[in-house]
Simulated assay, not measured.
Amino acid sequence: MKRSNQLKVFTLTVMISMLLALAQNTFAHTRLRVPVIEENTANHGSTYNDVVIGHGCQNTTDGASTIDTLGTVIVFPDGKDSIITVNGAPHDGTLFDFIVKGVIPITKVQDRSIFTHEDYIKAQDGLTNVGFWVGGGSGLRAGFRGLFPFTTAGVVIQPDSCVKSITFVTAIADICEITDPSGFTDATVQLWTPAVGSIYDGAGLHGYDSPATLKVNRSATPLPESCGEGVDVVVKPSAEQLNRDLQIKLDGQKIWPR
């Protein structure tokens, strides 16, 4: 009996250790500080948030995250050629079917506490912000975490739709060395991107197909009775958008990737 109890305690200890390791690894990923928000309107102000870099890049000796981060870039789905699913099924329409503005408005909060430069990433119309980048200066030292503030506003679910939530899948790259895509390794970049067939998929790398997400819950209007339990919508950026938008340009010149 004593041996049986010891075995149970040992098994439980191992399971707890594995869960703690998994939790620490998950929390160390680059994520949004507030991953779930309520829908809002311009009249109700903005929802303040942060991109949180959990760790630097991994060295080739022991795989530890000891390489400093030179900058980061984040892109949200632009709603033009995005990949949309409704309860897991493909949707052929646009974001206007689900949210009033057909896009998630992004505003960068100016902050140079870590990096010296920052700027928006514009949609093809040259007007809409689909993301932003930060970089330059001494960078983010390995072993420290970085918070990069931004806001979302006017994310309003179509009142007559059956949407109970809409999740925006982002694409983020934490850059540790300036390379071209052929030089992407765990030592040069941390790719937190959806695997949609872009040059940033990062197959085999540390963060493969584990992007940060922003879920918006319906709260401004009641779900129509005819909708039953409602539907969950997921929106991902397309490969075309990522190949076009997930980059850093300074004064019109492309800095990353080469």
Rank of each mutant, 00 (worst) to 15 (best):
M1A: 13
S4I: 13
N5L: 15
L7D: 13
K8Q: 15
V9L: 11
V9S: 07
F10T: 10
F10N: 02
V14E: 00
L19T: 07
L20E: 13
A21V: 10
Q24H: 14
A28Q: 13
H29V: 02
V34N: 02
P35K: 02
P35H: 01
P35D: 06
I37S: 05
I37Q: 02
E39S: 05
N43F: 02
Y48S: 14
Y48F: 15
N49H: 09
D50R: 14
H55D: 05
Q58T: 13
N59L: 01
D62K: 03
A64N: 13
D68M: 03
L70Q: 05
G71W: 02
V75A: 07
F76M: 15
P77N: 13
S82V: 05
I83P: 03
G88W: 03
A89S: 13
P90N: 13
H91F: 15
D92P: 08
G93V: 09
T94G: 08
L95K: 09
L95V: 12
F96A: 10
D97C: 04
D97P: 10
F98G: 04
I104K: 09
I104E: 02
P105V: 12
I106K: 01
Q110M: 09
S113H: 03
I114K: 00
F115P: 12
H117D: 11
Y120C: 07
Y120W: 05
Y120L: 08
I121S: 01
A123D: 08
L127S: 15
L127R: 15
T128H: 00
W133L: 09
V134L: 03
V134D: 00
G135K: 06
G136Y: 05
G139D: 04
G143V: 12
L147V: 06
P149Y: 00
T151H: 00
T152Q: 08
T152W: 12
G154V: 05
V155T: 11
V155W: 02
S161Y: 05
C162A: 11
C162I: 12
V163G: 01
T170M: 02
A171L: 05
I172L: 08
A173K: 01
C176T: 08
I178E: 08
T179K: 15
T179W: 12
F184M: 13
F184G: 12
V189M: 03
A195Y: 13
V196I: 10
S198V: 12
I199H: 10
I199C: 07
G202I: 04
S210H: 14
L214D: 03
L214M: 05
K215M: 14
K215A: 12
V216L: 06
N217H: 14
A220F: 10
A220W: 02
A220G: 09
T221A: 06
P222R: 09
L223T: 13
G228P: 01
G228E: 11
E229W: 01
V233P: 12
V235W: 10
E240K: 15
L242K: 00
N243V: 04
R244V: 10
I248L: 01
G252M: 06
K254G: 12
I255K: 14
